[in-house]
Amino acid sequence: MSQQRDEIRVVVVEPSAIVGYGVVAALNAAADIVVVESVSDLSLLTPQAMERLDADVVVINPSLIERGDRSQLRTAHPALSGLPLVAMAYDTFDEEYLRRFDAVVGLGTHPSLLVQRIRESVHNSEPMGDEERGDELSAREKDILVAVAGGATNKEIAERLNISVHTVVTHRKNISRKLGIRTISGLTVYAIMNNLIEVGG
């Protein structure tokens, strides 16, 4: 595991106060989860704030992301890059848009299921062992991919993400296995095709 800590740190971004309270209450009831911030919109989540909060996952209402930014969810706002995102969706959204989230919950979701989804989304962003096979890249793998595409070495990535070089190598193997892409330039093309990085980045 990349992070040696037991609690999952959650940021909640929900415009409805009553829904926000409900999500926070449900999550704080779980022994392994702590809500480190609950806000009504993204503007309060500056990069500095995100760094201080050291969150593991963000629960966010998908309507808070501007329509034009939805195809590039991960780059729409600093708070959305590099972390698993759980959608609290209670309006109608494009299925394709919702698929970009690591999990989707709604007003009908039972609190225990919400907790479970949060755990899964964080767990899935950890390096996978050989016994686990998934097709989509986890949020963590996307971070690594973006760093690799940006020309960072394994050592630099390890320092930046505060994980071991060994973990970075494992992530990279998993990325190449999932995508079938091995070269750094191939990974860069993939990252740009999927709007994971800005051009020239």
Binding site: I181, G186, Y190, M193
Partner: peptide, 16 residues
Amino acid sequence: DEKLADLLNIIIKYLP
């Protein structure tokens, strides 16, 4: 050869 294989993957799987 690896780059060619990557291009094949990208076109078949990830081209919009």
